[in-house]
Design a protein around this nucleic acid. Structure first.
Length: 962
RNA sequence: UCACGAGUAGCUCAUUUGGAAGAGCAUCGAGUUGAUAACUCGACGGUAGCCGGUUCAAAUCCGGUCUCGUCAACCA
């Protein structure tokens, strides 16, 4: 008889883990199945039906609309995942969280792309034959289908990201009902007296022929020509007098005022020269010419121009120079501005004149600069802008400049000044300069008639300006997460200018203003509301297809006290009016979403919104646009809290370039949505976030760790029926291993739900990962393996363990559901064995409340010490922990309250004994003892049994052997 | 230049009000082969950007400085 054949094969008698839950996630395929399953069951709608039963009520969260153009990118990935974590975590914690996704559909990026396409395909020629309105409608059609196409593409990608939202009924800023509500907000602002039309210099794109908002500018380096120019004084004696020169002291040469500018093309539009009254100015003879500049800059300027002889003849203060009259070096006729002729071409005072650059005398073109405009306004100098929308001069400039593009004019102007002897010095230099975010071309400052929302005009309602209201609410009305957002917002509100809300394009919501036969524009609250009604019914195309009279069908001029007299009295009829040509700034549209989406859809109850969540750039964009619009309209902010996240940068901390890196589609394919979501949950999103392919791999690794841990838990619940086989949680003794692990689970529940509530998803991720990796995989699961495998299937100890495992798997699925929404659902269905089950309809379980003995704190410490001792004993040849026994110190008698088998299993050794009078664990070599052929333990009870095998008492009992 | 933020182990980040510098990953070494494209144990690794101050005690508070990022402004 050979031993090998006689010995029973105990492996078959061991309860080895078994599960359908695979190690390989195969997310690419399985996530697609999950999406189908959730769609089929109508998950979003089901949750809304549960809504009124939710214990914590409604949490109103509002999606900021991404632009409906192109594929989603990494920035969207982070933004949309964070938003989904909010929606799903609030849901799983007992709130009802309706969530309407939105898209920003109007605007230049789409129109620009469409126009480019029309030019390339040659279709543009046909359009040019149409009249203005028809052409615009045709372009708008193209834009609309373009926006629809990308909205659908992005919606699909967002769903592929497993985000939960009302994709059946999203909001699009081009929907008629949305447009109507935007106009209602505009009407509110008119009511408050905040909307006005004015000639004002604005950032102007010459490529796209439109005004641009701050948010539509990008800064690039640009080489420009800077020139020092002498403006000849009109009355030499007057100037010399101001410098205190008398009689013979006065030079024969006529004096000039030296100005410096980096935009020579604005010189034909010069209206004044500004000085600062507090500085000292010098009359200087430079290489034979007499000129004036700030004393403090004489050396710098003449050095730069390599002047050979420099002599200061006299000095005076800036204040004394105010009123000096001069001649334009470029033109003889006074520019035809909208102000008095006698104000043009004299020296004025301005605080913003500094001695950092230039000459201390500032060329002022009221139609081409914000400061210049303000100065002109104060001094009563007219605004003059001889530049047309396409960037060329009109006919009011000297003949040699007419029709020329301003950027070409730069060098020509300099040449001309050189020839006439007015150019003192010129040089090229690099500086960053604003550019059109779409065309990437440089922008200019150009005075145009625009519609504005005034931030420094008092509202009729509370007699406070929007700036005051915004500052107040920023200070105390809105919660900022993280807190520094408040400072950012405050800084931006302090310095923001009036809001230019008009654009001269086709693809947008028309501003419902009208022009009288006299040429005057007007727009009143009643006009806006009348048009809003039409737009709500027919869409904003109606503006282009309908006549003024029809658009104003709901307008009663006689009762509109704000209307011009001629309209109110019926002298001018709606039929006589011409429609305005401007459309609204898209930021005004998205900035009205709180009204067009949240108030409109909820009948008012979802306003103000609990939370807005966007990237930190939106302090200038959507956050601010929404705040200003809502304060004007409602007098309160549209949101109670603002959560901001940083931007994606590459692994060197540099700005992410759009062309490099992985596309979303590649990422889905390689990693799957759950891994991407897991990665997002690991981010310290309040700062800038580094992205690299390696980081996704890392997220994949830790995802697999969590997945495998859950898999192992599930695999030990094979055949376990929690109803039938589970033990009551109340019956779990505080000294049992299960009491310990369930108390750890309770702690995890607290930590995770707290973190979710504070939007600390990283904390959630770390806590769950550590629980799986440490509490479960390394400690608890390692300890209970023996009893799960080797105890009698039905033993109370094994059933108690399985009860804990079930509780763990159940709760982990729920805690993870907001982040790993596919995997958590997969695990939950595997756990319950019910393929129709869905974890997303459930909430986090209440804590088990199991009481745990204090001895467990001592036990985990003892375990650490024991493992170190075991490591040391490897040198003595005890390499397998089951070959060892350990005597643990137990001075306080705490460990004595516990089961020594539990302690042994915690360290994976065969036996633990306790000793109150030792300090450090002692390892015993048990290799002489017989080894149980089933459990491989050397626990001292192993002997030959009736089947001929060497078994411990426990294993013999499990097999029904003596 | 302005505002806001960030500099802690090779990498990603914790260290909540000042109280013995901690994880994970990576690297290296070992165990296990009944979670096996899995699991366990251990080791290595830091002058907390730099300088100064307050304090019994500073990653933490204060002042200065350097670097990086975002936003804005570089205008005349």
């Amino acid at each position: 008889m050979s031993e090998a054949t006689e010995k029973p094969n105990y492996k078959k008698t061991v309860n080895l883990p078994k599960t359908q839950f695979p190690m390989k996630a195969n997310l690419l395929q399985n996530e697609a199945q999950s999406i189908k399953r959730w769609d089929k069951m109508g998950l979003y709608q089901k949750l809304r039906e549960q809504g009124n039963k939710k214990p914590k009520g409604r949490f109103v969260f509002h999606d900021g609309p991404p632009y409906a153009n192109g594929s989603i990118h990494l920035g969207h990935l982070m933004n949309k995942c964070l938003k989904d974590f909010v929606v799903r975590s609030r849901t799983v914690m007992g709130w009802d969280v309706p969530y309407v996704p939105g898209w920003d559909c109007h605007g230049l990026p789409i129109e620009h792309k469409v126009m480019t396409g029309l030019v390339e395909s040659g279709k543009i020629k046909k359009l040019m034959d149409l009249d203005e309105d028809k052409r615009r409608v045709a372009v708008r059609r193209e834009c609309q289908s373009n926006a629809e196409k990308f909205q659908k593409l992005q919606a699909g990608q967002m769903q592929r990201l497993l985000t939960l939202a009302d994709y059946e009924d999203p909001y699009l800023t081009m929907q008629p009902r949305y447009e109507r509500e935007v106009l209602e907000v505009l009407g509110d602002l008119c009511r408050e007296g905040l909307v006005y039309r004015a000639l004002k210099p604005v950032h102007w794109s010459v490529d796209n022929e439109t005004a641009l908002a701050e948010a539509e500018l990008e800064y690039y380096d640009r080489e420009d020509l800077s020139v020092f120019v002498d403006f000849e004084c009109a009355d030499a004696d007057d100037v010399y007098g101001r410098f205190g020169l008398t009689g013979d002291d006065r030079p024969q040469t006529k004096p000039s005022l030296m100005i410096w500018t980096t935009t020579p093309w604005t010189l034909p539009a010069n209206m004044a020269v500004a000085v600062n009254e507090k500085y000292e100015y010098a009359l200087v003879r430079v290489d034979g010419n007499i000129t004036v500049m700030a004393s403090g800059l004489v050396e710098q300027v003449t050095k730069q121009a390599k002047s050979e002889s420099v002599e200061v003849l006299a000095t005076t203060t800036g204040g004394k120079l105010v009123g000096v009259r001069y001649k334009s070096p470029l033109r003889d006729d006074v520019p035809p501005a909208d102000g008095p002729v006698d104000k043009v071409w004299s020296v004025v005072q301005a605080d913003y004149v500094t001695l950092e650059d230039g000459t201390g005398l500032v060329h002022t073109a009221t139609g081409h600069g914000a400061d210049d405009y303000q100065t002109g306004l104060r001094e009563g100098i007219g605004v003059y802008c001889p530049v047309k929308g396409d960037g060329t001069y009109d006919d009011t400039v000297p003949e040699w400049l007419r029709g020329m593009h301003v950027f070409k004019a730069n060098s020509l102007v300099a040449d001309r000044l050189g020839e006439s002897g007015h150019l003192f010095h010129s040089n090229k230099f690099m500086h960053s300069y604003p550019h059109d975010w779409r065309s990437k071309g440089p922008v200019i400052f150009r005075a145009t008639e625009q519609w504005f929302v005034g931030v420094d005009r008092p509202t009729k309602r509370e007699d406070k300006t929007l700036r005051e209201l915004a500052m107040e609410q920023t200070e105390s009305g809105v919660e900022y997460i993280p807190a520094w957002g408040k400072n950012r917002m405050r800084g931006m509100l302090e310095s923001r200018p009036d809001w230019c809300v008009s654009r001269q394009r086709a693809w947008g919501l028309p501003i419902p203003s009208f022009t009288l036969p006299s040429g005057e524009s007007f727009m009143t609250e009643a006009v806006v509301r009348a048009v809003a009604k039409v737009v709500g019914e027919k869409g904003s195309d109606a503006w282009f297809t309908m006549e003024a009279g029809d658009l104003l069908a709901h307008y009663d001029a006689s009762s509109d006290s704000e209307a011009p007299e001629s309209v109110r009295t019926g002298q001018v009829k709606p039929l006589d009016l011409k429609k305005g040509r401007d459309i609204l700034d898209v930021w005004f549209e998205s900035g009205s979403s709180w009204n067009a989406v949240m108030r409109e859809r909820s009948g008012g109850k979802d306003f103000p919104v609990d939370l807005y969540l966007e990237g930190s750039d939106q302090h200038r964009g959507w956050f601010q646009a929404s705040l200003v619009a809502s304060l004007g309209s409602m007098g309160v902010p549209p949101y109670k809290a603002l959560l901001t996240h940083g931007f994606m940068v590459n692994k060197d901390g540099k700005k992410l370039s759009k062309s490099s890196g992985d596309t979303i589609e590649e990422l889905f394919k390689e990693f799957g949505a759950d891994v991407l979501r897991w990665w997002v949950s690991s981010l310290a999103y309040e700062n800038d976030v580094k992205v690299d392919h390696e980081f996704f791999k890392g997220a994949g690794e830790s995802y697999r760790k969590v997945r495998n841990t859950i898999r192992f838990v599930l695999s030990n619940l094979d055949g376990f029926d929690v109803q039938k086989d589970g033990v009551s949680l109340d019956a779990i003794e505080p000294t049992s291993l299960e009491a310990w692990v369930l108390s750890e689970l309770d702690a995890l529940t607290d930590r995770v739900t707290d973190a979710y509530e504070q939007y600390q998803f990283k904390t959630v991720q770390t806590a769950v990962y550590n629980f799986c990796n440490d509490t479960l995989s390394s400690v608890y699961l390692a300890a209970v393996k023996d009893r799960l495998y080797c105890d009698e299937v039905d033993s109370p100890r094994r059933r108690r363990t399985q009860t804990a495992l079930y509780q763990i798997a159940d709760q982990l699925s729920r805690l993870l559901a907001p982040v790993l929404c596919h995997t958590a659902d997969e695990a939950y269905r595997s756990l319950t064995g019910d393929d129709e089950a869905c974890v997303h309809l459930l909430e986090v379980l209440p804590k088990s409340g199991v009481k745990v003995s204090e001895a467990w704190a001592a036990a985990t410490e003892a375990r650490d010490a024991g493992l170190l001792a075991l490591e040391a004993s490897k040198e003595q040849g005890i390499e397998n922990p089951l070959d060892a026994g350990v005597t643990l110190p137990d001075a306080k008698g705490l460990l004595a309250q516990l089961d020594v088998t539990d302690l042994a299993d915690l360290m994976g050794v065969s036996e633990v004994t306790l000793n109150a009078s030792i300090e450090k664990p002692v390892v015993h070599d048990l290799r002489d003892r017989p080894r149980c052929e089933r459990s491989w333990k050397r626990d001292g009870t192993v002997r030959e049994r009736s089947d001929g095998g060497m078994l411990s008492d426990r294993d013999a009992r499990a097999l029904g052997l003596e």
